[in-house]
Design a protein around this nucleic acid. Structure first.
Length: 433
RNA sequence: UCCUCGAUAGCUCAGCGGUAGAGCAACCGGCUGUUAACCGGUGGGUCGCAGGUUCGAAUCCUGCUCGGGGAGCCA
């Protein structure tokens, strides 16, 4: 019964004046002859404990001389407010019990290189900044699921092993499925479309895999996506849902993870203004804008990262870029009936240059049109028979989108790189630890 | 795949033709209010790998390997 009896450092303020026991690890130590300052972490926070010679048993005081970083210890003592302690509270220790002595913990409090830290990711996640970012990630996922649940979406998960590509045929991880080829999922969307015809509003949350040789601060080989899909929803409905959804997530992080955002030195004013409605700009307007900025961009090309940055930097909220050319978008996107050369879609670009966090569209609901588009894209009809069925039995206009979790975490935490936004990143040529 | 930068002590780096350095970490000692504590001492390196130039290479040249940043690719 340790877990239930222990006090969590996160709740320490409620125990001012009480004797409590903390079960944790030694984050750092400062010693001064007859006094030791032990900074203990327990997974929920950090607490300075003070061990004074004479106030703890002598053998335990001597133990502190040799106590190494990340040794596991159980500390008991009285909690009291003290301005000299980071966090405003500290513990006067009465007993220090060693669980296991750590030896030569590799990650020191000084600077380290990226390669070294990634090789020690299993330990790096104990670091305060990494810890804070992953707590924000947790909040983002919880907030997203709460919003969807509260708005009538049913969680219907999609398979990871799939018989055919959801999108283009490049960049898939191939595996063997009892003698047949199978691929790791790139999106749960096609299955979501089936599910939304059964449940109305659905979502899936899971990992997706891209075998792209991308080496940028915005790309992971394995990343997580949350994908809502709605029957009888137009692209206009889709955009309203997206701005409500994303605003809720941001405001929840501000409310519940303010301390972590402060640890990460995030400028909170940049998040406080994230409320609906979000600005919208059409692809056509974006092209004009880029040319006005001197980037020589031709209609029909896809935006590169620098182009997205130019567009998003003009706004202090996420911006929707709508109506992309049909040619550069996925086969299932609904062409605009008045202008078939563009589709009813939108990418949501996060502010401050964080790039695309959402891609969404209205899907084609007409059987013949979908079949024609699949032929244009050379997709094997036999693998997509079930998908075409959805246009055969009660097809209706429907829309959906996918939110990339790690890019969203990077934006909300104000972080440089998505690799630190997931506990164990899979990167180009890196699958350890 | 392309451009670009890099690889020296456990870590972060300096040294850039004349036989290897610092800070931190480790270990020993000192200190009753530290905040990446501080002060003194000790140990620790085939200078990524393979060739070449040179009297002499961590240092210059070539190739390779690995990594960073960027581009491309990328709902």
């Amino acid at each position: 019964m340790w877990l239930l009896q222990s006090v969590r450092i996160a709740d320490i303020k409620a125990h001012d004046g009480e004797d409590v026991t903390i079960r944790g690890w030694l984050y750092n130590k400062r010693s001064s002859g007859s006094i030791h300052f032990l900074i203990v972490r327990d997974g929920t926070g950090f607490l300075q404990t003070v061990a004074v010679r004479g106030e703890v048993p002598d053998d335990q005081f001597e133990l502190c001389n040799n106590l190494a970083q990340e040794s596991s210890i159980v500390v008991t003592g009285r909690i009291r407010a003290d301005r000299r302690a980071v966090g405003g509270f500290e513990m006067s220790a009465s007993s220090i019990e060693l669980v296991q002595m750590s030896e030569d913990y590799p990650i020191t409090l000084k600077e380290h290189g990226v390669d070294f830290l990634l090789d020690h990711r299993h330990l790096w996640i104990r670091n305060p900044r990494q810890h804070a970012a992953l707590l924000v990630r947790h909040e983002i996922i919880a907030a997203a699921e709460d919003w969807l649940r509260n708005n009538g979406f049913i969680k219907v998960d999609a398979p990871i092993l799939t018989p055919a590509a959801c999108e283009g045929t490049t960049t898939l991880f191939e595996t063997d499925y009892f003698g047949e080829k199978a691929y790791l999922s790139q999106s749960g969307q096609l299955y979501n479309e089936a599910a939304c015809m059964a449940f109305g509003k659905v979502y899936c949350y899971g990992p997706t895999f891209r075998a792209e040789k991308s080496k940028t601060r915005r790309h992971l080989i394995e990343f997580w996506m949350i994908e809502p899909e709605m029957a009888y929803a137009t692209q206009e409905d889709n955009l309203v849902v997206q701005e409500e959804f994303v605003s809720y997530i941001v405001q929840r992080c501000l409310a519940n993870r303010r301390e972590e955002l402060i640890t990460l030195e995030r400028d909170l004013s940049k998040l406080e203004c994230i409320v609906p409605p979000f600005p919208r700009i059409s692809y056509d307007e974006a092209v004009e804008l880029l040319n006005a900025e001197g980037r020589e961009f031709e209609w029909g090309e896809d935006f590169g990262a620098p182009d997205e940055a130019v567009i998003s930097m003009r706004y202090d909220k996420p911006v929707f870029v709508t109506s992309y050319p049909t040619k550069i978008k996925a086969f299932y996107m609904q062409p605009d009936p008045d202008r078939p050369e563009v589709v009813k879609c939108a990418d949501m670009l996060a502010p401050e240059g964080y790039g695309e966090v959402i891609g969404g569209s209205e899907r084609i609901h007409d059987f013949d049109l979908l079949k024609a588009r699949m032929r244009e894209h050379d997709l094997p009809e036999e693998a997509y028979g079930w998908y075409l069925d959805l246009r055969r039995y009660g097809s209706v206009p429907h829309s959906g989108f996918g939110l990339g979790i790690e890019r969203t975490v990077a934006w909300i935490t104000g972080s440089e790189h998505v690799r630190e936004m997931i506990p164990f990143p899979r990167l180009l040529n890196r699958i350890y630890p």
